[in-house]
Design a protein around this nucleic acid. Structure first.
Lengths: 332, 332
DNA sequence: CCCTCGCTGGAAATCGATTTCTGAGCCGGA
DNA sequence: TCCGGCTCAGAAATCGATTTCCAGCGAGGG
């Protein structure tokens, strides 16, 4: 490994001068500068980032803590974040929490010991990690979910409005017995989307019927089970609103297994777009989240937070977009 | 920031002793040990990872350089890698190269300056970055694609065999005019899968017809265009083999646009499974790659390489699995 | 003509943990 | 009783780049 001292010796100057030439922070005699550059090229010198990080007391790493990179919602989000990171000179460390508070905390701890420059996190319901990072004043952006009692930059989508729009679309199609499969009670997105569902019903004057609502775990199997339970009722629903992509897939699989078809047997609107919503036959109506934008916005907020740590936290709320496709065709 | 010196002062011992207590590498008087632990707890001390990395001359970071995290092939692979990384105490830095050799090289350069412990890379066709890392003797695992003239651990799938199996399945279904959409000529996977296609034809005694073969760019739009060009021929194919997932999606979109249906109008087999292959109607027959296993295997190889750098490089070839679904139903 | 200011280069301190080196103390064997 | 060998704590060197501090020199103003 060639060091800055090797370069200094080779070019006949001090290490300080080499550092100044390379960082360009101070004027250096052009002649010396040239010598240094030549020595760098000859030796193939590459500064040691770790040493630099130690001295500067910061790294160029961002952590992104999400529940699962295999969920298309997160991959697009991570992509948006990475694009910002790249232009700002940061690298993104990927952390799958699997919705496990212990894993989340382990990653938060790693963020601190490794002195990472910032974190973008989609908190688990208990949010142990968020508390830890917040206490340590690490630059942090919350994404997708709110956390009670934590003041931090946040990027959300307008879940309630988006859900209401999706449900209203079903109501406009002539459906009345509309079921809802939503997520865990502790998760803000699950509750906000359920609230949107209720508000759309209320606006239309349809009474709320708790027998048509299921709380599942935001996973495929959970959606499948919830769908079964809804269909096994004496009076099954004629339409369905599902509050995330994986549960929607589970619900569709359940329908397929039972030989039921959307929208003839049951109309379906899902929350979260999926890349292949157009290719499914019949194509799937969704309340699409601007996932790439979510990641990008989080990246920009994090950059600003790092630049000016004192600034009061801001919350950005992005709009969802209703993608009307075949599974929500009007009632015949 | 509390440092090891603060802990040392507080517990009345030297920093060396604190370090020894925390690392557990040497025996320390239990009484002192206890004092140190108490001080650590009281002060909320957390070692500075950057300083440790500098001294140890290595970090606990792995880079994974892939073309695009939004491609489901890579997300599952990255997930497999991250799971190994987590159990081995490493973190994964995500690097999207977008098939751009310049980006690949930039990331390779970052791997060196940041002293990352290892790299898993799916090389672009020119593989500038691979050469750089190989020269620097960075622990590296190549994944998905071979690179000429580079001796390194490699994880591949048996592309030729998998492709042949998929095409044979079409032939067994009674199809003869089978087209193939493959990737760029320089990319080993594109060529291997094309070779598999040809070998299946040869085995069945079907003459190779270059008018039925298209080279595209492994992207959706490329698949779409190639499909159009195939269909616009005087004698369009009766079956199709596509060598990656994104191009398959493009081809299917083209078919949908023209009102053609699989398998009645044209039978389809795609390479790379897609999470929703079952949900598409008709469901899509694929040559599935063990993507999670690819990532996991790469992680294990990387771990071994770091543990014993001198070991001769090994190549692991995983088997594909033919998932027979509806789009390849036998000819009527 | 002298003094002061500004600029530049080098010596050395610094970041924080690890590890080698040094020396003290203790035990056991001769 | 004395000495060799062993264990363990602390002092200090170390990793490599950055940055502060200081000295020397030249220019410009009084």
């Amino acid at each position: 490994m060639t060091t800055i001292y090797d370069v200094a010796r080779r070019s006949g100057v001090s290490p300080a001068t080499v550092s100044r030439v390379l960082s360009g922070r101070r004027n250096v005699d052009p002649e010396l500068s040239e010598k240094v550059r030549a020595a760098v090229a000859e030796l193939g010198y590459r500064p040691n980032g770790v040493a630099r990080n130690l001295r500067r007391a910061s790294t160029n790493l961002w952590a992104v803590v999400i529940s699962d990179i295999e969920n298309p919602f997160f991959t697009s989000l991570v992509r948006g974040l990475e694009d910002v990171a790249q232009t700002e000179g940061y690298h993104v460390v990927l952390c799958n929490s699997d919705e496990d508070p212990a894993k989340e905390e382990a990653y938060a701890s790693a963020v601190l010991t490794e002195q990472m420059a910032g974190v973008v996190i989609s908190p688990t319901s208990t949010a142990e990690g968020v508390a830890l990072l917040n206490g340590a004043k690490t630059p942090m952006v919350l994404i997708d979910r709110r956390v009670e009692g934590v003041e931090a930059d946040t990027v959300l989508v307008d879940n309630e409005h988006g859900a209401a729009e999706g449900v209203k679309h079903l109501i406009d199609g002539g459906y009345q017995r509309i079921a809802c499969i939503t997520g865990p009670r502790r998760v803000s997105t699950a509750m906000d989307r359920l609230a949107g569902y209720r508000s759309a019903l209320r606006t239309a004057g349809i009474p709320y019927n708790k027998d048509l609502v299921r709380h599942a775990d935001f996973r495929e199997a959970g959606g499948f089970a919830a769908m079964e339970s809804l269909l096994d009722q004496p009076e099954p629903p004629e339409a369905l609103f599902v509050t995330n992509n994986l549960m929607t897939v589970g619900a569709l699989e359940c329908l397929a297994k039972r030989g039921l078809r959307a929208p003839d047997d049951i109309a379906v609107v899902g929350f979260d777009d999926i890349p292949w919503a157009d290719l499914v036959v019949p194509s799937l109506t969704t309340v699409a989240q601007p996932t790439y934008e979510l990641g990008r916005t989080a990246g920009l907020l994090l950059k600003d937070r790092i630049a000016s740590p004192g600034r009061p936290p801001s919350t950005v709320t992005l709009r969802t977009e209703l993608h009307i496709r075949a599974t929500s065709a009007p009632k015949k």
